[in-house]
Amino acid sequence: MSIILEQLLNGLTIGSFYALIALGYSMVYGVMKLINFAHGDLFALGSYLGYTLLVWSAGAVSQRFGLWGGMAAALLFAFFAVGCVGVLMERVAYRPVQKSGRLPLVVSALGVSIFLENLIMAVWGPRYQAYPASVVPTYTISLGWFHITSMQLFILILSFVLMLILYYVVQKTTFGAAIRATALDKEMATMLGIDVGKITLFIFFLGPALGGMAGVMNGMYYRQISFVMGWNYGLKAFTATILGGIGNIPAAMLGGLLLGLVEMFGAAYISSAWKDVFTFLILILILIFRPTGLIGEKVAEKV
């Protein structure tokens, strides 16, 4: 029983990373119909930015405001910095290419991805970096046979809160409705007075920002980060997006959490070596049998 519960916790933790990254994929796909291949690298960038803040300056922040203060600073810093990088990316690499069609846009995204990955390597070096143990709390909370690390609890609560806020904003507010409307029909949204350019900007800030924050959480959780981690997490989160249904925000959250669970239980009960193969098999099967994902509407092509 306790093992299952532990797997569940591990699955949810990694699932919440996937979910936070998947949100960015999904939102960007919604407004631009682009699979933003650079998104995974933004996650990695967030991880490194948080690391730098914690290690270089945060000695100071952590000393003054405690461990949790230092973490909060790192998270917020990554959130805003990566968000700004996202906006810059849209302005420089996507907006000028958008009119040329979707294939050039895909290549541009691959270019940004290669650029970011190598930027990280150039700045922080090709070797693994470790979040020092001194900057993250490491105690474990135990309730009888039930154990949870403080980090796990923190990650779960924070991502849950973030998703809840996002869910509320997107599903319950008029601004959120404007975002969804823009994703569905840009021209109609414009006719209703929605500034599509502003919405796009917002999406390209928020998506990367959430990814960057997930990067910091991931670094704190596993403590080890590398410049190539973007590809792997990106690909997984992207699978999660499809699993839920691309372009649909609650679906991305669901897909992320579900994928985390599938992976954990798959690794535990089937085979850890083949778990990623199962992940991609699921992806392919979903696309064959339910291309709109678990939640999603089918749109017929007009002839």
């Binding site: 008029t174 409705a177 404007a178 969804r180 409307a181 569905l184 029909d185 109609m188 949204a189 209703l192 007075g193 929605i194 649909n248 509407e297």
Partner: peptide, 20 residues
Amino acid sequence: RVFPTLTVEENLNLGSYGAR
């Protein structure tokens, strides 16, 4: 061109978006 995956009320509310 209503937004099919939005509710009727959300569709209506969006109508006032530009005029808010």
